[in-house]
Nucleic acid binder design. Structure first.
Length: 184
DNA sequence: AGATTGATCCAT
DNA sequence: TGGATCAATCTG
């Protein structure tokens, strides 16, 4: 199964719109061990320099510079010394924003397996810091593609973001989006 | 509820 | 340079 690789223009849009749209798209990894694909089930948006939950809120640093760069590029960082978190940069160059992929469903098996949690997603897709700054619009190594499935807005649930209690009022923003199961 | 783990960032 | 912090996960 194949689909259309999401383009630079796709990601160069308001982050919350991109985040909603990413639900149901497929994260695809190509490596020596083969191809792996998973349907995106949960994402979390980090939007702009004012968002105190965002790494970019304290300005441009060596780590966060990628968030200020081109849309459609991967932002991967190590958390708690153990786990990698995979994000895709959004919006225009110069405006820091990104979307964290929190869960995917792998449909190669029956029943499909839910890979739930950003650390597990990165482990499953062999995403580490060597992926940081990779251009996801090239369709090589790692990309996101549209396989034509439509997702109804009514199937999208919104929740506060995880692990950002330090962010004051920004922690309460319902910017974690999850796809409800079809039968749910 | 506590341990783990190391890059990052900012204050000494 | 030191040390607190951290967009998480595992084990109990």
């Amino acid at each position: 199964m194949s689909g259309r690789v999401l383009s630079r223009a796709y990601f160069r849009r308001p982050t919350l719109r991109v985040a909603r749209s990413l639900l149901g798209k497929y994260l695809v990894r190509a490596s020596r061990s083969g191809m792996t694909a998973g349907r995106i089930i949960e994402v979390e948006a980090y939007v702009g320099p004012e968002d105190r939950a965002s790494h970019a809120s304290r300005g441009r640093t060596k780590r966060t510079e990628v968030m200020f760069g081109q849309p459609g590029v991967a932002y991967v960082y190590l958390i708690y010394g153990m786990y990698h978190c995979f994000n895709v940069v959004t919006e225009r160059t110069g405006y820091p924003a990104a979307i964290l992929v929190r869960a995917v469903e792998v449909d190669s098996n029956n029943p499909p397996a839910l890979i739930d949690g950003p650390g597990r997603v990165s482990r499953f897709f062999q995403i580490d810091r060597t992926i940081n700054r990779l251009d996801l619009t090239l369709g090589k190594t790692l990309w996101i593609e549209d396989r034509g499935a439509r997702v109804a807005e009514s199937r999208i649930a919104a929740f506060p973001r995880i692990g950002v209690d330090y962010a004051g009022a920004w922690a309460a923003k319902p910017w974690r989006l999850r796809l409800r199961s079809r039968e749910g």
